[in-house]
Design a protein around this nucleic acid. Structure first.
Lengths: 216, 216, 216, 216
DNA sequence: TATGAATGAGCGTTCATTCAT
DNA sequence: TATGAATGAACGCTCATTCAT
């Protein structure tokens, strides 16, 4: 049959194919240092082909952000609504688990590093990230923490502050894990790292005088 | 006549002069974005002069790391020895205050960002950083936390974990403050940010059932 | 079923269809600035289809010249023969009116501009243009002016010169009108512009001492 | 002496050197078609060197306009003031002579062609040309013609119109001379062409009933 | 030692042209 | 005959590095 004749990759796969190459090359050389030529070669296409699917270099990175951080955020928001019945503590622990599994994915680690390291120099990307990620995430966590505080599950901490602390701990661990700073010396397992993070956090937000609700 | 010329900077000062300019320019434009021309102009020398003292752009970056991060670590260690008489809680609070003032210095923010962004690509530098900074800092915090745990000031948390959490929170805030992610929405003062960090941390390490020792 | 498809344009119309689109796009973006993609889209065909009918971009341009400038010249010659009975002054005024309405047509403005801008670089086209347009038009005007001079309607000016002056004024106004240089400052109407041109020209060729014959 | 050792071109000549190359290349390939690389090679410098003296391609063209059209305009304005004693007719004839000698210079012909052909596509250049040339020239000619009309040397024609007609005739002749449209067939000398232009123009603006004042 | 004019490889991006379908 | 995804050479512009002075 005519079928077997050509086995090139299907056109529908092209954007994902390019994106995956971009993930790798951005990860290795940074946002500014990555060369479109390398991304193209790694994706197995010509330089011009990239521009059939993405208007420019920044758009590639935007899409990377969408597929990792924003996708996760949307999942979290859906879960939050679906899990309305659960306690804030349980909801938070679920959220943290999702965040942690994201944290361990190379794609997210790359994105985080680039966001921290280079986003400043790309004002349009910075604005995008701020609107689509930072403020949205903040809203989400606000609602979560407020619920827990009102239910007496957490001490009356400023929800913004709680959110910022959690984000800082997870983000930094993403960076450390990816750059090997975390792993080497204490041969801690991923699961142990997660336990340490949640345990620490739940102690920090536990009602004063109570047993930390998250550690059981 | 020729005498008035004495007022130029001495040739021996040249490297430091260049390094200071590099600091500023790297801080403003990042490693890749910094232009040798700008550094030269800011240092008051010609572009070619830089190459008399540093073989290339990278070398400038390496020297920057040495002069900032290591220098700070040595200061911390000296202070720790000098404060031996105080409680672990007080010592920790003092250390945090020092760390926070460092965190707010542009120099540290620059180095943190560049370390996160670029260190991976220089394995030799990464090793250097690991030995001279990461493990040394870890030892230092270990001793501090162990003291506090033994005295019952802190709950029996793994000292490594406590150190890692603290470092992650402060490091991330350094990055956020410098890139404006922290500041905008809640018009929080620097001092308030510091209070939030210490309050959060002391709650997390407080002996269970006790009032958080750090919050007063 | 398959029947409704009959409503597509016929294949025989394809070249004209493409040419019309080329006209518009060349007019808007110039020869170098026009993108084949735009022409294809505007013609309602795919990019590749253009290459079935024209070997390259240049060929499109050549064909455009043929369809506009030559076509007009032939119309002028026919009208001249048909109007044999009128005075030279009337014939000239009629010709000028026709020239002016041509001058205002976007197609002519486009061709004029492209001829000025690009013809030099295609010697073969330049020769073609010279033979088929320039010298033919000159002959035509020569006859017209000679008639007027012999009849005492115009002063004894060199007919070549009169023709050249007229052509220069109209051509330049075509270019100016199309590029907006003429319009802005004095909000002159098209009709006024035409009056100014003819009035000026008839004064210039009026018998010395006489009232300019064209202004009434 | 050390003098004879190196005879490279002096740095002070560089801008003019580049500009002359640009003149040639723009003339041959147009504004959009000219390649910086060609200009550099023709000037005997490297591509980057151009950018030491001109911020971009457009600036090269701006400077070309300045050295030809604007320089001439400024000369004309100075002469106008210096010649206050002369009749408007004499002043105009002097101006025309200057304009005609400009018209014959290859540089001016190139500039005119590019202005006509391509300026539309470079809006910033168009604005520059409009402000620095078109409106300034218009003012200048307005004053000149108004003087002549008030003194009864010219018929009461709208000064704007007279200026526009003159400009159109000279401009078009510049384009024709440069592209060979004017020259070939009637082997007219440059001087004769000039006489034809002035004679035609002075007849057109002569007081009705009078002998054309410019023709002698 | 110090200069800064000069270099040219390299970048992101565009688009005329090709060719498998 | 018609498509449009894919190509890749070419462009304007930048800037780390060199080198004659």
């Amino acid at each position: 049959m005519r079928n077997g004749v050509k086995w090139r990759r299907l056109p529908e796969e092209r954007p994902q194919q390019i994106l995956e190459a971009a993930f790798e090359v951005f990860g290795e050389h940074g946002l500014a240092g990555a060369r479109l030529e390398d991304i193209a070669r790694r994706a197995g296409v010509a330089k011009g082909t990239i521009y059939l699917y993405f208007p420019n270099k920044e758009a590639l990175f935007k899409e990377m952000i969408r597929q990792t951080v924003i996708a996760h955020l949307e999942r979290s928001e859906r879960d939050f609504v679906a899990d309305r019945g659960a306690s804030a503590t349980d909801q938070l622990r679920d959220y943290m688990r999702g965040l942690w599994s994201l944290t361990r994915s190379p794609a997210y680690q790359v994105v985080m590093r680039l966001v921290i390291a280079e986003l400043q120099r790309f004002p349009e990307l910075m604005a995008f990230y701020w609107d689509e990620v930072v403020s949205r995430k903040r809203q989400f966590l606000d609602r979560l923490f407020r619920r827990g505080i009102e239910a007496g599950e957490f001490r009356p901490i400023d929800p913004h502050v709680a959110g910022r602390m959690m984000a800082s701990m997870f983000a930094m661990h993403a960076l450390w894990v990816s750059s090997g700073v975390c792993a080497p010396t204490p041969p801690t397992t991923d699961e142990e790292l997660f336990e340490q993070l949640t345990d620490f956090f739940f102690h920090a937000v536990a009602p004063v005088g109570a047993i930390a609700p998250g550690s059981a």
